[in-house]
Design a protein around this nucleic acid. Structure first.
Length: 594
DNA sequence: TCCAGGTGCGCG
DNA sequence: AAAGCGCGCACCTGGA
């Protein structure tokens, strides 16, 4: 049974899909399945519900699901995918409201008027965005696809991710502006007046000019300026990259490297960042769910996914609360092992002894403050123990090379040994690369497909075959071909890892809610509906931060591990791959360093 | 004065 | 172009 709810006046429609009768029967013994809210864009509706203290358990985000189903190889033959481009294609995401900002013009005063009769379809704005028709088309596309179960899970996970993202935006990341200011003052000197450099930067500029014997007009922020001065002084640098400068032996190198590092802190996460982004003790980032082609999240505003380690000291839990910081250990190689169903590689991931030790299971003990416990199931150590390579560093660089397409250095050296030990895993990434080189699409475990190369790609390829094509035309085409192969090679791994992470947080947010509130009166500073409950505050590809009443920290830690195991089962069934999680219970994010 | 492009670095 | 993937952001430059 699907119940359609429209607000009074009907300018906007939201659709709630109620449990099917079968679901109700299956749940007869337990609590009823909560409704799945279906809407055009989670960020149009959910922030307002959260402001009213309402949490939504399940959702179906039509915009996100459309993007997946439209391009998935699994649903390529469906009506939805073969239809001409429509209004749901390329729909820009709704930007969530900023706290204190004006309500968006189309924000409804109340979400629903339950007295309204349910329409069978709705296109109130006449913009072609009919959520009822679109939901029907999507459910049909999933059902008639080549992988209904996979796509159903992917759409559910993507939508759950949208809920989690909106919730994290709602509560914000606890941020101590006073601690941040201390960090800055310590590194840069006191906050400068507008238009002036911080004292420590100014001193470094003088040292740089001195070392180069350059005039006071030398602007260290101007690359052409600086390169010219360095050439004149005979430094011999081709660029200003850190790794390049480090190779040089010249008095300017040390102050210049220090200047670049501090300059970065000052411009990217300095006082003006603080003024703009850390309001009222919280950093409210805006996640862009599905913002990366591979399915990873992107972010906009404040560089939320690039918070330097040097300022994480400012992320401090509220009084009486703690952070549980959980990190999926060696996520991508484990995902690769499972994707390829490579038993030997999966066994290496179960630890140096192949997983026979009791500590290797998902039940590995939760640890106390500052501790971490995934070290004994280090996959790279497992690869060394299996005799594939000599050192952990070789294992790590080799695996990264396999997944990224490295062709030189250590990664190229150890590749033959990896290919011999783990033929199925290496075959998988190699065929993904070759498919990309042929201009073909590759697809993740749950059905997200890579984009096709753009028109410029084909143009470059055909130019290489012109009669008057030169050697550089050919080499340009070849390098472009290889680059696209590296992209598709990585896509299957990064994209499937992103799916694992979506399932992880989807499971986790459900488990955290189920932990309930703490006994007694421990309402914290977080807004409703999370004021007295553990909740997610940060997500970074393979890492989560949970803000929790201290009394629940141990249970939260256990749930992060259980959720990781559940994510593994959802994606890979009973294939014996493990996803150990490094967990730290801390007062400050900086104390969770891996 | 605005904008695209290049450069470099933060994160995973 | 480091040795290979994916991002966001700040700055400078040079042209409109």
């Amino acid at each position: 049974m699907r119940v359609i709810l429209t607000r009074a006046g009907g300018q906007q429609a939201a659709v709630a899909s109620m449990p099917e009768p079968g679901d109700l029967r299956a749940d007869a013994a337990g609590p009823p399945t909560p409704p799945r809210w279906t809407w055009d864009d989670t960020n149009r509706w959910y922030p307002r519900l959260l402001s009213d203290g309402v949490r939504v358990e399940r959702a179906h985000d039509l915009r996100l699901a459309h993007a997946i189903l439209r391009s998935s190889d699994l649903s390529a033959d469906t009506t939805l995918a073969t239809a001409p481009p429509g209004p749901w294609d390329g729909l820009p995401p709704v930007s969530p409201p900023q706290p204190g900002g004006a309500a968006p013009p189309d924000a409804p005063a109340t979400l629903f008027d339950l007295g309204q009769p349910a329409p069978s379809s709705s296109d109130p704005d006449g913009d072609g965005l009919d959520p009822v028709a679109e939901l029907g088309a999507q459910l049909d596309a999933i059902a008639s696809s080549a992988g209904p179960a996979r796509l159903r899970l992917l759409v559910a996970a993507e939508s759950a991710g949208a809920l989690a993202a909106a919730e994290m935006q709602h509560v914000g990341l606890p941020w101590r502006t006073d601690v941040h200011d201390e960090i800055l003052t310590e590194a840069l000197g006191p906050r400068p007046r507008p238009g002036e450099r911080p004292a420590k930067l100014e001193a470094l500029v003088h040292r740089i000019r001195e070392a180069l014997d350059a005039p006071p007009t030398l602007n260290p922020d101007s690359h052409p300026d600086l390169l010219r001065a360095m050439e004149y002084a005979g430094v011999g640098a081709r660029s200003l990259r850190k790794w390049e400068l480090e190779k040089l032996d010249h008095p300017v190198v040390a102050p210049l490297l220090e200047y670049k590092s501090l300059y970065r802190l000052y411009t990217a996460n300095g006082w003006s960042w603080l003024d703009t982004w850390a309001r009222a003790g919280r950093f409210r980032m805006e996640y862009v769910v599905g913002g990366v082609v591979t399915g990873r999240w992107a972010s906009t505003g404040g560089g939320a996914l690039q918070l330097p380690h040097s300022v994480r000291r400012a992320v401090v839990a509220d009084p009486g609360w703690q952070f549980v910081v959980a990190d999926a250990a060696q996520l991508e190689p484990r995902v690769l092992a499972a994707l390829a169903r490579d038993e030997h590689m999966a066994a290496a991931g179960r630890g140096p002894d192949g997983g026979t030790s009791a500590a290797a299971g998902p039940g590995a003990a939760a640890n106390g403050a500052g501790g971490a416990s995934a070290g004994d199931v280090d996959m790279y150590a497992g690869i060394v123990a299996a005799g594939v390579v000599e050192t952990r560093q070789q294992a790590k660089v080799g695996m990264l090379g396999a997944m990224y397409g490295g062709t030189t250095g250590v990664s190229a050296q150890v590749m033959p040994r990896l290919a011999k030990a783990f033929p199925q895993a290496i075959d998988l990434v190699e065929s993904a690369a070759r498919a990309g080189e042929r201009g073909e699409v590759v697809t993740t475990r749950l059905g997200r497909s890579s984009p096709r190369p753009g028109s410029a790609w084909a143009a470059t390829q055909s130019r290489a075959f012109d009669e008057d094509a030169g050697a550089d035309d050919a080499s340009r085409a070849r390098s472009q071909t290889r680059a696209w192969g590296r992209f598709t090679r990585n896509f299957v791994v990064q994209g499937t890892a992103a799916e694992w992470a979506l399932c992880w947080i989807a499971s986790l947010r459900r488990r955290l809610w189920a932990l309930g509130t703490v006994p007694g009166d421990a309402a914290g500073l977080a807004p409703a509906p999370f004021a007295d409950r553990p909740h997610l505050v940060f997500f970074l590809h393979d890492e989560v931060v949970i803000h929790t009443p201290a009394a629940l920290a141990a249970q939260v830690a256990a749930e992060t591990r259980a959720a990781a195991a559940e994510a593994g089962r959802l994606l890979f069934g009973d294939f014996p791959v493990t996803f150990p999680v490094t967990v730290a219970t801390v007062d400050s994010y900086a104390d969770a360093k891996d």
